[in-house]
Design a binder for these strands. Structure first.
Lengths: 172, 172
DNA sequence: TGGAAACATTTTAGGCTTAAAACAATTTCG
DNA sequence: CGAAATTGTTTTAAGCCTAAAATGTTTCCA
């Protein structure tokens, strides 16, 4: 199978207009591989959280955000950080308040804003889960050398920047 | 901030028993970055598919699997390839048969098995979407050099293998 | 000052997703 | 052969998720 040679340079100004369907199979394969890795790891983490702590991944993720913010966060902040819709956060928070993991109150200075925090129970449970969670992640990435890890970090940072730029271009 | 030096070797047999809480912050950060990239790109693709073709990402993904299999696939095959649960595929297929994009029949040789294919309509619509989709992906990854792409592919292959090994260890 | 714009959140409607249990058909093997 | 295990799919119950519309609040500025 011949590797797709990446000849993206325009040979002359005419070429541009001719709607040459360029070959981007490599990028497509990269995207699918990225997705596979994430899905694989996410599924594994989801299963372990359920088995070991009977907690869902979204609940864990939300608690993780709050653990980093002792003074609490607004729902909007959470929504942006977790990269999920506002309505999604509303329901998630509802259930976590119900189960006693979260505390929620209306801001004194702005009555539109809801501030949420971990309760003592929520924080204790999260810390307990987080310790094991970190070990799971370490194990899942165990075959990567420190150099691999650094290199992946670098390339993913570049990927993130590229994707954000592209997303920005579209919204513009 | 001192980089965490990765000293995973056991210095002596005693060390193992002492429950040293090892530092795996780097791997954790790597996982979060991986997740961020995927979520970012996935969200972008989801939005474009909806806006441009009024189709959901899962529907598109399922059609993509079938486009590669002219003779059809069983629901199990699809479920494994897409890395989603069986029940999920059942519902997805139901809706795509309903909308005329998929054809479904029971296997002649094994009455447990359902074989699904793209209909003519389904294939035509998918091809139309796939062409644009590939361009979107290319744009999202546009700032990566060909070398970056190759290197990412390599490192993600290694990551996938590592995660699969770890998942296997757990199931064992 | 008063209305328009912006903002934070919730609601709505529909679809996606999972884990586990149930069901049906086939294969295995005593 | 026939019971037990396996395999493929569907069902169930619950929760997750999104986009878009609705609601309430604050800010901006003419």
């Amino acid at each position: 199978m011949p590797a797709a040679s990446d000849c993206t340079q325009m040979l002359d100004s005419e070429t541009k207009a001719v709607e040459t369907p360029e070959d981007h199979a490599e990028e497509l394969r990269l995207w699918l591989r990225l997705l596979t890795c994430t899905t694989l790891i996410e599924g594994e983490v989801r299963g372990r959280l359920r088995q070991r702590f009977d907690v869902t991944l979204p609940r864990f993720d939300l608690m993780a955000q709050l653990d980093k913010a002792p003074d609490g966060m607004t729902l909007s902040d959470v929504s942006k950080r977790m990269m999920v819709s506002n309505g999604n956060v509303t329901g998630l928070v509802e259930r976590l308040v119900e189960s006693g993991h979260l505390d929620r109150r209306t801001s004194d200075t702005d009555r539109r804003v809801q501030v949420i925090r971990l309760t003592k129970l929520g924080r204790a449970e999260f810390r307990r889960m987080a310790a094991e969670h970190e070990a799971w992640i370490a194990d899942l990435f165990a075959d990567l050398s420190p150099k691999d890890v650094r290199e992946l970090m670098r390339l993913l940072a570049k990927t993130k920047a590229s994707a954000q730029k592209s997303a920005g271009r579209r919204r513009a």
